[in-house]
Write a protein that binds this DNA or RNA. Structure first.
Length: 520
DNA sequence: TCGGCTCCCACGTTTGAAAGGA
DNA sequence: ATCCTTTCAAACGTGGGAGCCG
């Protein structure tokens, strides 16, 4: 086992201090110190991810900030999802975290082969309601509980080149769902008896820090909506899970002997919903020789067939050609490799290189620790490689300070303002409108709107280098609120006027992945 | 009383280490 | 000495059921 210092801070098994520092850095940028990524919504009405040009992309928006319309995403196990969706999919959430089944498994096309991408997933509320299972069906039982700030699950193989992402289907089977608000494992926190919608984001970014000014190509698949439950309500869903999830094999025909034993022979009948053309289950797909491991001879072929089995991940690491690519994929990347500049030619969809930022003197540990409690120590000032990749330091007045509060590119600024004004009214001059941009349905909105205030927050004065902490504290309060829970925001009128898409967006936090990627 | 939640159980799957063979 | 295969056990993931709690 490599020492802690060699573990990839996001994909390794431990949360090292460097991990914390990275998360700290990320949170700083996310909190509005630099502008947020633009997110464009790709709705998936059918088979393929369909790019839809949002009305929120103003004319004159800089070319390199547009999502890449060539990127397509296909839901690989769509048939399985459809089977579940027919009966309203339920996902168990537990205190310690439970995997999703079915898992979100996608194939991606249209990426730049040599460009590095992050593939991310988050789960957002599908609507504003709480549900109950009554008379064998789900009915609305009231208004939704407040949703905690979401967590962004970074696929453990990120970042990888476009060629690698496109080589194999990408599976999010390691994602775990929990109802534990205090979860420190990086699992996605959901409310029970609420409906949720997973989303996939593809971001061209060389490193984790670049994520925050990368362009988010976002995709949703309507059939992947599910209800979070602590115990299955619908027997049909239970049977589908048992029949299709290899881990639940013990509850199939043979395994039900146990149920008979326990229940005195009153075992339920075998699956009554088996599809007429049931999708090949993962266990069936790999039943030839389950003991054959991916690193055995002929593994690349096996992996492809076994990719849907539990425990396997995207298998791009198995047939790498370019040794340089191997660094980022095959082993747990070292922090140095994680942060180092990448030699590959810049993509037209990658943002321009940005000058370094000085982050000394910003005490944000309290802010970050509310999201990632393991964050404790400040970034080592000797880490010059990190500085190379940090975002610009630019204030609205054009002076350089400790905190970049406005986009470096004037074109970006006007675009962001355009987005903001469409919700919160005109941005007063001499204000800091870009301090806390957020994404909402693929729009960037002012946090005042996000937090449900009818008017924008009283805008803070332009932060000076001396008022750094207070501004950041305010950003954290505005974003997450103290106490932690707060009521949901009503949807902005401009959103309600559009096509129905009742998916409230929330601020991101970042999930620390404690699991080592499979097959490593 | 009841719905929701947590904990524990038995069972199947996955995974990595060790042993053995080519 | 190296590589590959096989074996084995621990860890992990699963749904069910009992019991607790508000």
């Amino acid at each position: 086992m490599a020492g802690q210092g060699l573990m990839n801070p996001y994909f390794g098994s431990t949360a090292s201090s460097l991990t914390s520092n990275l998360v700290d850095q990320i949170e700083r940028y996310r909190l509005g110190i630099t502008h947020s990524p633009m997110a464009m919504q790709h709705t998936i009405p059918g088979f393929h991810g369909d790019f839809i040009k949002g009305p929120h992309l103003p004319p004159g928006f800089p070319m390199n900030t547009k999502p890449d319309p060539r990127i397509k995403v296909r839901l690989e196990n769509e048939n399985l999802w459809n089977q579940f969706d027919k009966f309203c999919t339920e996902m168990i959430i537990t205190k310690l975290g439970r995997r999703m089944f079915p898992t979100v498994k996608i194939s991606i096309t249209g990426l730049e082969p040599s460009t590095k991408y992050f593939v991310l997933m988050d789960i957002i509320p599908a609507d504003d309601s709480r549900y109950k299972f009554q008379s064998k069906e789900w009915v609305v039982a009231g208004k939704a509980e407040p949703h905690l700030p979401g967590r962004l699950y970074i696929h453990p193989d990120s970042p990888a080149s476009g060629a690698q992402w496109m080589r194999h289907p990408v599976s999010f089977q390691k994602v775990k769902l929990t109802n534990n608000n205090l979860d420190q494992q990086g699992h996605i926190v959901l409310n029970s008896m609420h409906k949720f919608q997973p989303r996939i984001h593809i971001v061209a970014a060389n490193d984790i820090l670049s994520l925050h000014w990368g362009i988010y190509n976002s995709f949703t698949f309507s059939q992947t909506q599910f209800l979070a439950v602590t115990a299955y309500q619908n027997d049909r869903i239970t049977q589908l899970k048992i029949n299709n999830n290899p881990f639940a094999k013990g509850f199939r025909e043979n395994g039900q002997l146990r149920s008979k034993k326990r229940a005195g022979g009153t075992s339920p009948p075998a699956c009554e919903i088996t599809s007429s053309s049931p999708e090949k289950t993962p266990s069936e797909e790999c039943c030839v020789d389950k003991r054959k491991r991916p690193n055995s001879v002929g593994s690349s072929h096996d992996i492809e067939e076994m990719d849907d089995r539990p425990g396997s991940s995207m298998s791009v690491e198995k047939d790498l050609v370019d040794p340089d690519e191997k660094v980022d994929i095959e082993g747990p990347a070292t922090p140095a490799s994680f942060l180092r500049p990448v030699r590959s030619s810049p993509s037209p969809f990658l943002p321009s290189t940005r000058p370094p930022v000085k982050s000394e003197g910003i005490d944000q540990s309290a802010i970050v620790s509310s999201l990632v409690p393991s964050v404790t120590s400040p970034l080592p000032s000797t880490d010059s490689s990190l500085k190379l990749l940090t975002p610009p330091v630019t204030s609205s007045s054009g002076s350089t300070g400790n905190i970049p509060i406005l986009p470096h590119d004037p074109g970006l600024l006007s675009s962001h303002q355009h987005c903001l004004t469409s919700y919160g009214g005109p941005v007063p001059p001499n204000s800091a409108p870009m301090l806390y941009p957020h994404i909402y349905y693929g729009h960037i909105v002012h946090p005042a709107v996000y937090l449900g205030r009818t008017h924008p927050l009283p805008l803070p004065p332009l932060p000076s280098p001396h008022s750094t902490s207070s501004v950041l504290d305010k950003a954290a309060r505005d974003m997450y609120g103290y106490p932690y829970l707060r009521h949901h925001a009503p949807h902005p009128p401009s959103l309600l006027a559009g096509p129905p898409r009742p998916i409230p967006m929330h601020g991101y936090s970042y999930a620390l992945q404690h699991q080592v990627p499979a097959n490593l």
